[in-house]
Design a protein around this nucleic acid. Structure first.
Lengths: 103, 103
DNA sequence: ATTACACATCAATATATCTTGATATATTAT
DNA sequence: ATAATATATCAAGATATATTGATGTGTAAT
């Protein structure tokens, strides 16, 4: 039950649904890209990414000073059905706006 | 987005997941049966049933002074996948304990 | 070693949600 | 009409969750 509620709770927030859809659409992005695209402060983004990661939707790959987030693969059927449903909604997400000052 | 969050929010609560699983297991039940099986006060049950109904998981059939709740049919693929996932969890639900004082 | 950037976490506050008891409404039997 | 049962809704307090700014950690360049 706890795992279920954790999974469900992660997508029970408009901001997280948007971020998840953004990553699912754009593929691997780093935190500063999300920060720059959504115009939200970094700590807020970071917190939401942690929740989505802990719930099994995202994975992180740290390379250098950046943390690259992407949709976790492989993914179980239930989480896939949630992703599919989110994809079918007509959610407005910002354009990818690269935010890292050096690379 | 709002419909999605409403659907998700309805199953983002242990009590509601248990009630939903209970109805999915036992078929059509009336409110006093749930009240008597779960040993919860009536207003609490009623509130949760309303949320599950408004989220598209349950339907009501009023006959006489009773309100009979059951899983809504037909049900879209996404809600079905949620029900399926809940069914796969190992959720403890009480035995059906008929509670209506007359019938 | 120092500076700059990327990211994570903490603590306080704000906001939303759940629970509960009381109260209201509706139906049926007498 | 009155009483009893079934159900719904309201308002208050309790609890959980989100947001924010500050602070901490790690990496890379100078």
């Amino acid at each position: 039950m706890n795992i279920f509620l954790n999974t469900i709770g992660a997508v029970n927030d408009a901001t997280r649904v948007e971020i998840l859809h953004f990553i699912n659409t754009n593929g691997e992005v780093c935190v500063c890209d999300i920060e720059n695209s959504f115009l939200m402060i970094q700590s807020r983004i970071s917190r939401h990414l942690k929740i989505l990661k802990d719930a099994g939707f995202l994975k992180v790959d740290r390379r250098g000073r950046w943390a690259y987030y992407s949709v976790r693969t492989p993914m179980d059927e239930f989480r896939q059905s949630i992703l599919k449903e989110i994809g079918s909604l007509d959610i407005k997400i910002p354009l990818l706006n690269k935010g890292c000052k050096s690379e």
